[in-house]
Design a protein around this nucleic acid. Structure first.
Lengths: 207, 207
DNA sequence: GTCTATACACCGATAGAC
DNA sequence: GTCTATCGGTGTATAGAC
């Protein structure tokens, strides 16, 4: 009995083309905003004719959908990776969680808009594309839960705060860190209010 | 010498038509979002042919521009009116200021997007339309200044907080008050951190 | 000031040949 | 799977008659 071939060259090529299309779409979005992504422009960039794209995606919204899913899967991967090395103390974890989200969101405006700002009319993510988003929320909620932030009102304040910082950073200082550096202080206010234990800072060498 | 006529019927009619155009534009925006405002649709609603709109506005962006200016002048009026009856104590003033902004912003999603969320490509407000926006910032900054919030970092935390609450409210509970009711608590955290004096609540009749 | 007619540049999507 | 050709629609804006 001969082993089935491990690689399916045809499928590989198909997926390579899909990736190429998505890469071009991201490139366009980064240059001219999400709404400037058009089938014509995608096709031009990858040397195709616009109708050929329909062999790979059922519609333009299907492309947005794939981008949406990809973005959340990427964040999920980052979140899992970073969460493994979060500090042990509650306040440190809180800051680390928020900073992980903040950095991911602010590092790519158009991706953030696609993920978190419903700005594309007549685009609604499919259930499949939405799944990794739900998984991210689960991870974040469980981290906050461990810390002791369980009440809905407390979670709501946290999300408003994190989202507000991201938006201000992107809107008013997109290349800087004006709000990023304030994040720990803002979170410590919340931590104080919730009575999270303060961990004495690790003693440093003298002075 | 005959007194000049107080009313210019021609000008009045012109401005009435302008108002009619803007009213139709807002109506469309409220129903289908800011980007769904088109000259065709405006013209249809007021019983005109699309090209006729050019007798009143130089371009579509000129219409957005007028809407932008109108929105900020409206907020300025609300702000001046409300500020006259803000409480005397710093914490009360802080909450009143933020609530005034919050209520105005959340009461009209499309207006908020036009004012605060740069989401229309190739639209930049003219200097004239931007002026009332600057005046609003002046008023808000001066209120915060009286309270004792003067450092840029403190102002930045305030704006991130206020903006974050507005966005969460509009995105996740547009018809409710889930974040509105949390606003005083969130602001008291900031007030605590800044050491704003706490005013003993006015004694009420017994228990 | 408003109209008709039209120019012009886009867009997403489909049909059918190869 | 990719192509050519094309459909049917969107939009802003201009020219010129009335």
């Amino acid at each position: 009995m001969v082993a089935a071939p491990k690689r399916d060259r045809k499928t590989e090529r198909r997926e390579a083309t899909r990736r190429e299309i998505l890469a071009a779409a991201w490139e366009i979005a980064h240059q001219g905003g999400l709404t400037s992504v058009t089938l014509r422009e995608i096709a031009t960039r990858i040397g195709m004719q616009p109708p050929s794209l329909y062999s790979h995606f059922a519609s333009k919204n299907a492309i947005y959908d794939a981008m949406f899913g990809q973005a959340w899967r990427d964040f999920h991967a980052v979140l899992e990776r970073e969460a493994a090395s979060f500090p042990a103390d509650p306040r440190g974890r809180l800051v680390a969680l928020a900073t992980t989200y903040f950095d991911f969101a602010t590092s790519d405006l158009e991706r953030h808009q696609l993920m978190d700002v419903p700005m594309l009319r007549d685009f609604t993510p499919s259930e499949e594309a939405y799944r990794p988003a739900v998984e991210c929320y689960e991870v974040m909620r469980s981290v906050l839960n461990e810390i002791g932030i369980r009440q809905q009102a407390d979670l709501d304040i946290y999300t408003a705060l994190a989202g507000g910082f991201v938006n201000q950073q992107l809107a008013n200082d997109p290349k800087g860190d004006r709000w990023r550096v304030l994040l720990p202080r803002a979170l410590s206010l919340l931590a104080d209010d919730l009575g999270l234990p303060v961990q004495a800072p690790t003693p440093r060498s003298k002075k």
